[in-house]
Design a binder for these strands. Sequence first.
DNA 1: TATTGACTATGACGTAACGTCATAAATTAT
DNA 2: ATAATTTATGACGTTACGTCATAGTCAATA
Lengths: 252, 252
Amino acid sequence: MYKVKEAAELAGVSVRTLHHYDRMGLLTPKKGGNGYRYYDDNDFIILQQILFFKELDFSLQKIKEILQSPDFDEQSALQQHKKILLEKKARLERVIKSVDQSIASFRGGETMTPKERFEPFDMQKVEEHRKKYAKEAEQRWGDTDAYKESAERTSAYSKDDWKKIHEENEEIDKRLVQLMDRDPADEEVQKCIDAKRQHITKYFYPCSIEIFRGLADMYVNDPRFTKNIDKVKQGYAAFVSKAMHVYCDQRT
Amino acid sequence: MYKVKEAAELAGVSVRTLHHYDRMGLLTPKKGGNGYRYYDDNDFIILQQILFFKELDFSLQKIKEILQSPDFDEQSALQQHKKILLEKKARLERVIKSVDQSIASFRGGETMTPKERFEPFDMQKVEEHRKKYAKEAEQRWGDTDAYKESAERTSAYSKDDWKKIHEENEEIDKRLVQLMDRDPADEEVQKCIDAKRQHITKYFYPCSIEIFRGLADMYVNDPRFTKNIDKVKQGYAAFVSKAMHVYCDQRT
DNA sequence: TATTGACTATGACGTAACGTCATAAATTAT
DNA sequence: ATAATTTATGACGTTACGTCATAGTCAATA
């Protein structure tokens, strides 16, 4: 049982924020006879979830709806969270890279034209991406039916199903490993990449180009991923990622 | 010469946004006798710059100051902002870690303590670390003499120098690989770690404990690093990182 | 030419997610 | 017992616009 200040410090938010959440009925802790708010373990779990969704740019209203919906499945929500977070991270990394480029060009004494400066960004694309992405995210959690369906889909898989899924995936990887000496744009390679995408679509979720692109970035940006994927063969992650990008570029 | 709507569409912002920018004196286009706003090429360049800085999370006020200050130093602004972006990234990484932990604890049925739960969110720690680090970093990489010196130092190295440096580093790595079965805290191991630090100090920059700790984290968090380092041997990165942390912990 | 419809301007209030006082009661420390 | 913290509530401030409302302007049409 923590009082506001302590709770706030633990969570790294302000006291006012907790007041706010209480007032709007998002997080309502027990109240003592003195009117004080007392936060228990359960409140902290909820708070953590709130922060998760906030990280995903959901509005507090939306978060309220989601968390208070009776068919909210924490576990698969977490899994999906991770994906989005990795996407965000990849995007951040791109921004950082662009800033680095700007700095570097200064050091080199070259003057960048504004156009050059914005090239790595291309605001319109970024915006489009965000919008598309937000839509997909909303469908996944906001709209309950779609969310339920997706959750049921993966949770319905039996051990044998999983085995089959993994085997199928490994099959594709094997084929790709044998093509690693070729160009990422090679036709055979691209066929495998398409198979990879359809595999995801088939067993998990409709894998849009945008999502697939995000995945490609993830392969090289997330060390856990890289490690797992590179188990197949040293440098495999980078190769697949490149090929996936080619694939996506060809389709936009 | 474009009128608002057209200009807005071109830039991918709303008309209201342009009104807003005009009102606050951020972007003031020419006005016709009818009071209409007319945006020319130059206005678009400014607009692009505004969007650029917005993407970097600057407030409009800040952007105004930046763009209108005659002695606006884009470089230092960018460097400043890179720090913030890196912080964001670090925070994201913590969040991701926390998601992983949550998933794991669900599977294991263990309960997280509130502290554990918010570790990745804990802004205060992040802030503290950033401040400490920023001070040191600024001394070395700031726009000042120290930076110049360091830059000159490395740029002055000849190919042979680089070769020697690399060889020396590999020498240390080799020794460490042979000790990989031992405990990271093992005396021999720690000696090598010290050698590693001194190597950096000798050839690059005074490698403080804090910096060294940061490096340790980078070894496992940055895929480019991990990849390079793991080339030496599978799992080497993790081992070195752990040993480095032990080393740093012993000295603080 | 009068009218319609699209576009424009300004003004003013609305919104989200809090920040920032102000005031007063309760708790804790000395 | 008194001072220093912490708490609560209320209310206004803030950022970057969104969303009307009202009214003038412009180009095409009946």
